[in-house]
């Protein structure tokens, strides 16, 4: 983690340095995305453009997976739109640290607010006040750290997408590298199933995806996710009520 950086450039570089280890996990994702996009018939320039415009790895993998399964535009937009809603949480969590900044800074940092940049930047902000790298005039330069972390992840994502697209064009279909996408979903899902309400959400959504499989354009996925959300919220409420009762 960063020591004391007392200039904008120092904060920026500290952000880059602290984000760098996370690229180890991000680069394979970017390459899998590029390879799977080609396999789904997405033109390479559009796949690369998506990494800049959407800039959200999980949602991009979902889009590619659904395109390969022949889904329509509306279900794809709804599913990836739902999945990305979690960014509102990050935005809310960052608000107290960046709300004083000029709008152009907030626009830039919002664009760079990914899972991995959030994880690194929020730690910088939460570190104790004595370590906040404020120069003698008292100016807070930590948004440069956030910018450095976000920029590093952005560059890593663009380059790994490009590498996947270059590499993917030379890989024969028999290698079935598109299977890496559902495997990625399995890995992420396992990490996420820590609480009971989340497990209920996943179970109902998974069964729902099978129950509604025959809905056109993969709209069944949207229905399944919405049902899963309801199940998760309902289970959370029930558990809270049980806890409160046993506490009395």
């Amino acid at each position: 983690m960063a020591g004391k950086a007392t200039s904008a450039g120092g904060e920026f570089l500290a952000g880059c340095r602290d984000e760098a280890p996370l690229l180890l996990g991000v680069i394979p994702f970017g390459m899998i995305y590029g390879i799977a996009a080609l396999a789904a018939g997405v033109p390479a320039w559009i796949a690369q453009l998506a990494s800049a415009v959407v800039f959200a790895g999980a949602a991009q993998l979902v889009i590619v997976q659904m395109l390969a399964a022949g889904a329509g535009a509306l279900p794809i937009a709804l599913t990836s739109g739902l999945l990305n809603l979690r960014h509102v949480l990050y935005s809310a969590s960052m608000a107290e640290y960046v709300r004083h900044l000029p709008r152009r800074w907030r626009l830039l940092l919002a664009y760079l607010l990914t899972d991995e940049a959030y994880a690194v930047a929020v730690l910088r902000y939460q570190r104790h006040a004595a370590d906040t790298a404020q120069p003698d005039d008292g100016a807070d330069l930590r948004h440069w750290y956030f910018f450095g972390a976000g920029f590093t992840l952005w560059a890593g994502w663009q380059l790994s997408t490009a590498a996947g697209l270059l590499f993917g064009a030379t890989i024969p279909a028999e290698w079935e590298l598109d299977f890496a996408v559902p495997l990625t979903f399995i890995a992420l899902l396992t990490l996420l199933l820590r609480e009971r309400a989340g497990r209920a959400a996943a179970l109902v959504a998974g069964l729902g995806a099978l129950a509604f499989a025959d809905l056109p354009y993969k709209l069944g996925l949207v229905a399944a996710i919405l049902l899963g959300l309801l199940a998760g919220v309902w289970t959370g409420h029930r558990l809270e009520r049980v806890e409160r009762r046993s506490a009395v």
Binding site: V181, L188, L189, R199, G228
Partner: peptide, 18 residues
């Protein structure tokens, strides 16, 4: 509360479907 369950629900539905 809703946001917390989005990721598990989405990945479960997509995995089952895939």
């Amino acid at each position: 509360a809703l946001c917390r369950h989005i990721a598990p629900a989405s990945f479960a539905a997509l995995t089952a479907s895939a």
